[in-house]
Simulated scan of single mutants.
Amino acid sequence: MNRILEALPEIGKEDYSNNPPRWFRYFFKFLSALVGVGMAIWAIIDDAMPIGFYLMVCILVPSFLLFAFHPNWGLTEPPSLLANQLGMYFSPSGSLRFGQQPRKVWLFVPWENISNIRYTRIVKGEFSKGMVMDVKVSSDEIDEFFGHYGKPSDRKQSEDGRISVVFYEGGSQKLVTKLLSLMKNSGLSDQSIGTSQT
């Protein structure tokens, strides 16, 4: 049964998260500090710097350093998609009304409500590819958690209430393989699991 959760579980080494790895985020913060310090030294050393460039450096240096040394910026954003051996967790993606705050919740969908994960064409203005799955969710859950994505070109709704939804535009067949691996490791043997490419 699908559930709406107020917090994500801890992310393990075998789990999939669409956030960049923690080491990459620390490396990016280090580069930001390096650029900020470099620009500050350049502004101090270069006496012939035009006043416009000097003012721009005075704005950019604190911005780079604030990003680099602020303890939470760039490191604490939760993933919008997480998968583990229990199932998949989705963040809200529906459109908000003016003045409405986004909900900080996640939809947990167990693997038994997910099938036919595939990499296929998406209809969204122009044809592009993305990851699609057949999922058993309510219409409210579709609106809140899959609302702004395009529709798969092979969209269908089965008699048991499963509907094809796009859950990640772009991505790759490699990610589909990772998710199928997590699904199989959960002990679920689903005959409808597929990796079709359209």
Rank of each mutant, 00 (worst) to 15 (best):
G38Q: 05
M39N: 14
W42P: 14
W42L: 08
A43V: 14
I44F: 12
I45F: 13
I51T: 14
I51C: 11
F53M: 15
F53H: 15
F53A: 15
V57D: 07
C58V: 07
L60S: 12
L60Y: 11
L60A: 12
P62M: 08
L65M: 11
L66Q: 08
F67C: 09
F67K: 07
F67W: 12
F69H: 12
N72D: 15
W73L: 11
T76C: 13
S80I: 10
S80A: 14
L81T: 03
L82F: 10
N84D: 09
L86D: 14
L86Q: 12
M88W: 06
F90I: 00
S91Y: 10
S91D: 05
G94R: 05
R97L: 11
Q100H: 08
P102E: 03
R103E: 12
R103G: 11
L107Y: 10
W111N: 06
S115T: 12
N116M: 03
T120V: 07
R121M: 11
V123Q: 08
K124F: 14
F127M: 14
F127Q: 14
M131T: 13
V132C: 11
D134Y: 01
K136L: 10
K136D: 12
S138Q: 01
S138D: 00
D140T: 05
D143V: 04
F145L: 04
H148M: 09
G150Q: 04
P152D: 09
G161T: 02
G161P: 01
V165S: 09
V166H: 00
Y168H: 04
